[in-house]
C-alpha cells in the first residue's frame, strides 16, 4: 500500500489546497481511505491529520472501510421517491440481508443510497457499479442482483 500511496501523493507535497482531489485519487487507488493513508496525506500536504479527516468525513464520496466487490446505490431522488424508491431499498436490504451503508459478509455487495443519479425520468432506479437499472419494481430486485452474482 505504501508504494501505491506515495506514487499518488508525490506531486502533492505541501499542497494544502489540493486535499479533495488527493482524497479522491487515494480512494480511487485504494478503494477507501484507511487511517494510515490519511496520516500520510496529512504529512504530505502539511495539514493537521484532524483536518484531513474533517474534510474527508464531510463529503459523501469518501469511505473509511473497504467496499464490497459491487456497489449498489439506490437512488433516493424525489422522482424515485414518489415512484417507490423506498420499497426498492427495502427489498434490496431484505435480499442482501444488510442495511444501507453496510457491506455483505462475503464482501460482495455494499449497499448505499445516493441523493440523485439524475435519471429521474427512468425512476425508480438503482446504480450498480457504473450501470443504471431503470424503472424498477421490488420484484425485479433479486433478478438484477443475481445478474451480478458471478
Amino acid at each position: 500500500m505504501e508504494e501505491r500511496l506515495s506514487a499518488v501523493l508525490s506531486p502533492y507535497e505541501g499542497r494544502k489546497d489540493a486535499l479533495i482531489p488527493i482524497l479522491q485519487k487515494v480512494q480511487d487507488e485504494l478503494g477507501y481511505l484507511p487511517d494510515d493513508a490519511m496520516l500520510e496525506i496529512a504529512k504530505t500536504t502539511g495539514l493537521p491529520e484532524s483536518r484531513v479527516y474533517a474534510v474527508a468525513s464531510f463529503y459523501a464520496q469518501f469511505r473509511f472501510t473497504p467496499r464490497g466487490k459491487h456497489t449498489i446505490m439506490v437512488c433516493r431522488g424525489t422522482a424515485c421517491h414518489v415512484r417507490g424508491a423506498e420499497r426498492i431499498l427495502e427489498e434490496t436490504e431484505r435480499s442482501l440481508g444488510i442495511v444501507e451503508g453496510e457491506t455483505t459478509e462475503d464482501q460482495k455487495y455494499t449497499l448505499e443510497t445516493v441523493a440523485c443519479i439524475g435519471c429521474c425520468a427512468l425512476a425508480p432506479c438503482v446504480m450498480i457499479d457504473e450501470d443504471v437499472e431503470a424503472k424498477l419494481t421490488p420484484q425485479m430486485v433479486p433478478e438484477i442482483l443475481s445478474g451480478r452474482n458471478e
Partner: peptide
Amino acid sequence: DEGDPGAFMDR
C-alpha cells in the same frame, strides 16, 4: 454541483 434530488438539467 447539481444536487437537488430530481434535477439533472445542468448535467
